[in-house]
Design a protein around this nucleic acid. Structure first.
Lengths: 136, 136
DNA sequence: TTGACATGCAAGAAATTACTTGCATATTGG
DNA sequence: CCAATATGCAAGTAATTTCTTGCATGTCAA
């Protein structure tokens, strides 16, 4: 059950994308390549240190490539791991069958609405004892 | 600057996908639709309560639809938010330009190798004082 | 009816993540 | 050279997430 390098990459990518600020950094770099740490911190509502740590995480996930230019560090979006993650993990789940299940859910909900005798599961929401009373 | 419903959905989806166990739940449900909580807990190396909490999170992100059948709760993958997230957020970043940057990074690295007089940035890795000494 | 089973809910512990603060090192321009 | 600027590193705190523990409720089958 050895984890493959790809699985590890997918995990790093999804963890990196879990934070709105980091996603914002990626879209910012997509719009404007080569921004420095200070520039990014100026554009976004985050402290320089926070941006720095987020960038380190994005670099670790290989989503951001960097280049030193004197005392400045230029940052570039690298979308390759995003594409890889899509192909390897996301796309396989997006099948016609899995998409159709929204319709199923809606159907179930409308059925429940037509059948007022049995509320979907309001049971556990009630205070203790209430439901038992109604049942009797 | 009001956050749109779509932005909120994207955030919930990415947060949900950030955990390997939750991703595993989704792929499991993709392979076998209609599994119950207990069945999922039996298949995966997680306690029933842990699975339950993960499923609640996935339901909140609308990635899992459920149907009660007696005392059992059947779970189904809903891939629609995945497709939406891909279209709204991921796909726009996967452009030829952003993909080409891997090549750029590799080029930069090989340039650095050809220019041994200035190591990319091993500076801060060294112990304090070391770099200054070499500089002099 | 009742015991076994399926799930829910809640509170606390453990682990991880996010952010701040303070200082060290390196580069540039005057 | 040196002051200003750009970044790095480390440790501590705050916030969030994840998991466990314990018990309550609802459903089914004998």
């Amino acid at each position: 059950m050895a984890r493959t390098a790809q699985q590890r990459s997918v995990d790093r990518v999804f963890r990196a994308l879990a934070h709105a600020g980091r996603r914002r950094l990626l879209t910012t770099l997509h719009g404007r390549a080569g921004l420095t740490l200070s520039e990014l911190a100026g554009l976004l509502p985050m402290s320089r240190q926070a941006v720095s740590q987020h960038l380190a995480l994005l670099e670790a996930a290989d989503l951001v490539a960097t280049r030193w230019s004197g005392r400045e560090k230029l940052h570039y979006l690298n979308a390759a791991p995003l594409a890889d993650t899509y192909v390897a993990w996301l796309a396989p789940l997006i099948t016609p069958e899995a998409m159709r299940l929204v319709a199923l859910r809606d159907r179930v909900e409308s059925e429940a609405a037509r059948e007022p005798a049995r509320p979907a599961r309001a049971r556990h929401v009630e205070r203790a004892g209430e439901a038992r009373k109604r049942r009797a």
